[in-house]
């Protein structure tokens, strides 16, 4: 039988130990941040980070107002901080809008602005009535989760943390398994 404690195995175990140690320490904050934001995002509705607007409609989609009209109503409804430098006479400024999320089944459109709070106005597609106005905190958390909040290229930070976590898991498993394998073989030899 071959010696289970070969130099090759010893080298690999040593590498696993140091990778586990170094990556574990270096990736701590990134992983802690990703974990916390991940849990918060999983419960974003329950924690009130994302508004839940209950709305039922019988109006056909064909009766919807134009996107321009809906956006204008959202502009009027949101606080001035969400649309800096906007006047009624300007009409809709697409540069101030992040996105318009149309929900035909619910009969509304969510108009999200590009401000600090990610303010969102929920507007009825058929009547144009503003159903809700408020910040979307989950958008910030999503950006923090991905690292996007810190600037361009910082998305690689979450990639690095994910790779570090995978390597740490594999090396940790090996460090737990390796002594047991050696002990098992030694018992088998006896």
């Amino acid at each position: 039988m071959t010696d289970p404690n070969t130099p090759h195995r010893r080298r690999w175990t040593r590498w696993a130990f140091y990778s586990h140690l170094w990556l574990g320490v270096v990736a701590t904050l990134a992983l802690a941040s990703i974990s916390v934001t991940g849990v918060l995002l999983n419960h974003k509705r329950g924690l009130g980070l994302m508004p839940d607007v209950p709305h039922e409609t019988d109006a056909p989609l064909a009766s919807s107002l134009s996107l321009d009209d809906l956006a204008l109503r959202a502009f009027r409804a949101v606080p001035a901080e969400a649309r800096p430098g906007w006047n009624e006479a300007d009409g809709v400024k697409p540069g101030l809008i992040d996105r318009m999320d149309v929900r035909p089944r619910d009969g509304f459109v969510k108009v999200r602005f590009r401000d600090r709070d990610n303010t969102e106005a929920t507007v009825d597609l058929a009547t144009g009535k503003v159903l809700h106005v408020g910040p979307r905190n989950d958008v910030f958390l999503e950006k923090l989760h991905s690292g996007e909040i810190f600037g361009d290229g910082f998305i690689l930070l979450s990639d690095v943390a994910a790779v570090a976590l995978a390597v740490t898991l594999i090396t940790g498993y090996w460090l737990w398994l390796s002594p047991r394998l050696i002990r098992g073989r030694e018992t088998g030899v006896k």
């Binding site: 701590t28 802690a32 941040s33 934001t37 600090r116 709070d117 989950d138 910030f140 958390l141 909040i149």
Partner: peptide, 30 residues
């Protein structure tokens, strides 16, 4: 690490260059 984690999460809104305490706790403290 604990301060930076807290500062990055609260309030859950975007960072501004004028957020002095957030910059101090979230970045400088590390």
């Amino acid at each position: 690490l604990l301060l930076a984690l807290g500062a990055s999460l609260w309030p859950p809104t975007g960072w501004l260059p004028t957020d002095t305490w957030r910059g101090a706790l979230g970045v400088w403290s590390l």
